[in-house]
Design a protein around this nucleic acid. Structure first.
Lengths: 176, 176
DNA sequence: TACAAGTGTTTTACCTGGAAAACAAAACTT
DNA sequence: AAGTTTTGTTTTCCAGGTAAAACACTTGTA
């Protein structure tokens, strides 16, 4: 970790917060805060950072995720399946689908065998859109992460995968 | 990394998503997704996971963060300062402060030297509350993270700190 | 077979946060 | 000193998400 020296001299905001707590309440174990605080802070910043290519395509992140899910699974999905795949509520998915249908990127029809069910798929233009935006978004994300060396990226990915396995197991949520 | 073997056999959801993209679009570099997707997923799960002790105290996470900020800085802050410290908008801070004031945890008064400015501080009961909830919340977070060995936690914290330094530098946001 | 329980999607009601507007006060410029 | 620009907070308006309700359909049970 050649960048460790730099990290030591330029603190992130969580380091500052932790320092304050150590002074105010030296009895507290701040270790969880150092992980969770940073995950949350990174997520918040990345949430803002990933607006640019999606904004160009006039997509919100959740809409992008829906289109991406239909693309990567490669077949029709029901709103319930989409909700589970994207960890959203059914109501949110319904609303988003309405917009995506209006824009012609997605269409939906009733299931012939079960009248309660709606089947959702990408239109041709929806598929074109996601196939075009996906590489742009990944390139953008590559650039956003470029300050972290490749080895470190692989390492943080592996550690977070491990944490995710625990969190997904612990919290009883489905895994792939 | 003694847990690496387990991580290899039980995949997190992001691993599944990445696998699908590799099949559908083998031309794409999925590396950013493996970092960013996992950060976002961990953050979402932790967002839900950290409800329990705060819910007992009838606090939302943003309210908890406001109280914590007043506690750790140890002095009065203005709404603008609170907004910057908690990375929120002024409007959101105003709304939250209104609630916290109503509950008697926070009080605010005008600045004598600048009539535009409001000064905000913890009440005695507000201080008691945060001093009581903070250890509970940290204990809870320790338990949530307990599936990841201590060394791995320290490592992921360090790597995320590095990433945060980059993101905060790149995106021009203030650092401590 | 009739009724009860369960399921899938959509609708409804409500809440929260952000952006912009509003307003007042302070700082700056001429 | 008067007018303009900037600043700090609050208010207003709107969008999006959630939980619950509504509704229709399917499955299970007696």
């Amino acid at each position: 970790m050649t960048a460790a020296g730099d990290g030591g001299t330029a603190d992130d905001t969580v380091a500052g917060v932790v320092r304050q707590w150590r002074m105010i309440r030296p009895d507290l174990d701040t270790a969880p805060m150092e992980v969770i605080g940073r995950i949350n802070r990174c997520a918040a910043l990345l949430q803002h950072a990933e607006d640019a290519p999606l904004r160009r395509a006039e997509l919100t992140r959740p809409e992008f995720d829906l289109l991406g899910t239909l693309r990567r699974t490669g077949h029709e999905l029901t709103p319930g399946e989409l909700a589970r795949e994207t960890f959203s509520s059914g109501a949110a998915v319904t609303k988003r689908l309405k917009l995506l249908v209006e824009r012609g990127w997605v269409d939906r029809r009733s299931d012939t065998r079960d009248r309660r069910v709606t089947r959702v798929r990408l239109t041709a233009s929806g598929r074109e859109l996601i196939d075009s935006v996906m590489p742009d978004q990944l390139r953008y994300e590559t650039a956003v992460l470029s300050g972290l060396p490749d080895g470190d990226q692989r390492q943080v990915a592996a550690l977070l995968a491990e944490l995710l396995v625990q969190l997904e197991g612990r919290l009883g949520l489905p895994r792939a």
